[in-house]
Design a protein around this nucleic acid. Structure first.
Lengths: 362, 362
DNA sequence: CTGAAAGCGCTTACAG
DNA sequence: CTGAAAGCGCTTACAG
């Protein structure tokens, strides 16, 4: 409370207020540090940026002044002047899906290493929110963007970004007709493996539940499904295909609808693990046992798949690795504008657990 | 490609490069917009900030120029000049814990409504990383900070922030000896309810697994445990208390160690749902059945608790609501520096599921 | 190695 | 309602 020695004020509030005002207005500036240390601002600036041209003696002197004054570097001002950015936007559709948590960890770990900070936005699969988040991030001068597009995303979204010349990497889901860097798993191949596994077990009536129809992630899976069925001279039955939002709740609804239909499948391939969890819940609600009465396979291999009831057979799409690759790719793009478009497709792996591995008593 | 009309260059790369350079350097500025619309920069500035003083006609004219030129507002420059901030730092310990995903959703939804963007950082419970993230956020000029402290956090962390007069709200975990705004659940009461429930079921040998010893979240639970046991004339047995990191893996290890000891409890209260999932896995690994041989209770009521095997009895700590409250509180603090310290403690609720509700055959 | 001056894109008084 | 000028905290040439 030294600052208030000059007045005799005893009103605590006023004192406090005065102090706050003072501190709030006056962030210690590099110029003040320079003055305190007896050097020019340019010299101080070179020091905060670790320029080796400065003698060890001056550097130490200035660093000492910074400590004494409690200096905090203003990266925002620096970025503005030098026309650079130390932030990156990350837009995902649903953080409560642990697929995205894992993806986010991969992104963050990688960006942190190169000194970039993440501005996070969640769209909940709404086009409007996606566009709004992109605007916000642009206004905040992000140096690049990792975008997991909503299912209804159109090419216009990208051309807008391209016009501003801001580096973008798409992840998880592609955008129709868009030529853009992309990181994701091979959903077609993954689905093929999953369905092939079910067919080998003797299943002939296989349903496909969940996912937004005609989104790229859904279409790819549908291709894989068809391929596997065709090889076994089987066909996709329309009454066994029900699309939905990619959530647990929607999976529950979808399987309830399925079970109301005249025919019943012996196995279900689910769009994602999240959908599969809802499907298993629904099956049980209907008095059936997942993994015994109906086999279930998911997609993603989120951490919970291992501990679900029963443990879920699924296709690993390596979310953390995807995040890492996306961040790496974006960082490369930011560094060199020369970068040519890349597609990084991770090979999926089938992980067989109890939801599809018991002997069938057909 | 109009820009290149003056040269005869056919090298695609060079052309592309030239274009990028040009676009990269020249972000459209408010001044350019003003010129294009034939008004002064001040007028344009008032318009971007939705000042009603401007006539509808000029406003429309300027907005039209913005569209034509592809103007993007530079919030960073604006914030620098006006000494404000439109970002908030959020530091959590582990995003793969869906407790924090839910918390994050609560924070984001609330902040978004008031036009604030989240800078996200994850500490993985490392003190060093926490301090580093705080520095980064300060350098990025966040207007405030929501901090879920690491278990070893000390008061110094806060005094540093206080000195800079940056609004802070602690969430989930408190810091010893620190007087700071706080949002969290009543862990003591929650634990009391959980353990009381076990005792009512006839359990006398109750273990407490997981959580970092002496962290505030652990200590509060320990108090609740003791209170419930004391009421039933029972005591805490040291060999039934094993601390650990608050993760699934650590829960697994903890129960494995527990089962190696001479005595075995009939029920386990777990620090969190995540720990409980690991515990149930370990119990099963040891050939026992959770919910039959040993009853299990978790804490948090994360979404997976409902679909685990068996469904987990747990104490709901309302993560999404906590996030909402924390964001709201921070926003209030930012708005009025007059704010006095608050503690928002949510009342926990016991959610009984199969992991502790079957009849006991003791 | 150091200093004085200009400028990043915006907002802020202040005068009209 | 509009305009000219200064300034937020930094970096960038450029001259010494």
């Amino acid at each position: 409370m030294r600052q208030n020695a000059y007045n005799g004020c005893n009103n605590k509030n006023q004192v406090r207020n005065a102090r706050m005002k003072q501190q709030k207005k006056r962030r210690v500036t590099l110029q003040q540090v320079a003055e305190h240390a007896g050097v020019s601002t340019s010299t101080a600036s070179l020091i905060v940026r670790n320029n080796p041209r400065i003698s060890e003696a001056t550097r130490e002197k200035v660093l000492q002044s910074m400590r004494e004054l409690g200096y905090v570097y203003d990266r925002v001002a620096a970025n503005l002047r030098s026309q650079t950015s130390t932030t990156v936007g990350l837009i995902i559709t649903d953080i409560s899906n642990t697929f995205f948590s894992e993806f986010l960890i991969g992104v963050q770990n990688t960006l942190e290493e190169v000194g970039l900070t993440v501005l996070l936005g969640t769209t909940f699969d709404s086009v409007a929110k996606q566009e709004q988040l992109i605007s916000t991030m642009l206004e905040h001068r992000v140096g690049g963007l990792i975008l997991c597009p909503v299912s209804g995303a159109a090419e216009e979204t990208l051309s807008r970004l391209e016009q501003l010349d801001i580096p973008v990497v798409l992840a998880v889901r592609e955008i129709a007709d868009a030529d853009c860097d992309f990181v994701g798993a091979d959903y077609e191949e993954g689905t093929y493996k999953a369905v092939h596994h079910l067919i080998e077990k003797g299943h002939q009536e296989i349903a496909f539940l969940g996912g937004v129809k005609h989104s790229s992630t859904w279409t790819k899976r549908m291709k894989g499904l068809k391929k596997a069925l065709r090889e076994a001279d089987l066909e996709v039955k329309n009454e066994f295909v029900i699309d939905s939002a990619p959530t647990r709740e929607a999976g529950y609804e979808a399987v309830m609808e399925l079970l109301r239909r005249p025919e019943r499948p012996t196995a279900i391939f689910c769009f994602s693990d999240l959908v599969a969890f809802g499907v298993m819940q629904g099956i049980r609600k209907a008095g059936l046992i997942p993994g015994e009465d109906i086999d279930i396979v998911g997609f993603d291999n989120v951490p919970e798949a291992e501990i679900s009831y029963p443990p879920l057979t699924t296709v690993s799409s390596f979310p953390r690795q995807s995040g890492k690759e996306a961040a790496q790719l974006l960082h490369d793009k930011i560094a060199s504008s020369q970068h040519k478009k890349q597609r990084i497709i991770l090979a999926p792996e089938l992980v067989i657990r109890e939801s599809s591995s018991k002997k069938r008593n057909a």
